[in-house]
């Protein structure tokens, strides 16, 4: 069956189309600076991790996360940094770490968990690690946290 008609961009015929950019506030930083910030964070996270400060490292990587268009490189770098933290945390420590995050950081972490689950085999993303974090995070932050990860248009 011909399904190509489903791929026609019908919005181009709508003069009053609602654009993605109207649904959230754009990041005020310019793409180059966002990438710079992400690189600095990656370095800072590595030093935090070497000291065993997982909460500090997570808080760092979950603040001012890159979102929106034109910052793909920074997004990937930030996800990579985050995955490093997730992979290096012992399963028994996860509940304590999750509980000491701020509510905003919890919501952002949930967004990254879902993004990671959408990229199986990308980098060293491991499904079982993500699911372990997801379980503990949902116990603490509830279904509301999942709903916020779905509604927020500032995609990480």
């Amino acid at each position: 069956m011909d399904v190509n008609f489903r791929k026609i961009d019908v919005d181009q015929y709508d003069e009053d189309v609602l654009l993605d950019s109207e649904l959230y506030e754009a990041d005020p930083r310019d793409p180059a600076q966002v990438l710079d910030d992400a690189k600095q964070k990656a370095t800072a996270v590595r030093s935090s991790l070497s000291k065993g400060d997982i909460v500090g490292a997570l808080t760092l990587v979950l603040t001012d996360t890159p979102y929106g268009p034109n910052v793909e490189e920074a997004k990937n770098l930030n996800l990579q940094t985050l995955v490093t933290i997730l992979n290096s945390t012992k399963a028994t420590e996860i509940p304590g770490v999750v509980r000491s995050l701020s509510q905003d950081a919890q919501d952002t972490l949930m967004k990254y968990l879902y993004k990671g689950m959408g990229l199986p085999g990308w980098g060293d993303v491991s499904g079982s690690v993500l699911l372990g974090w997801h379980e503990k995070l949902t116990e603490v932050a509830g279904t509301g946290c999942i709903v916020r990860a779905m509604t927020d248009r500032r995609l990480v």
Binding site: Q103, D107, A141, G142, T143, G144, C145, V147, R148
Partner: peptide, 9 residues
């Protein structure tokens, strides 16, 4: 003031 809930919307 934003009050974030742990429950469904």
């Amino acid at each position: 003031y934003h009050i974030k809930m742990t429950t469904l919307p």
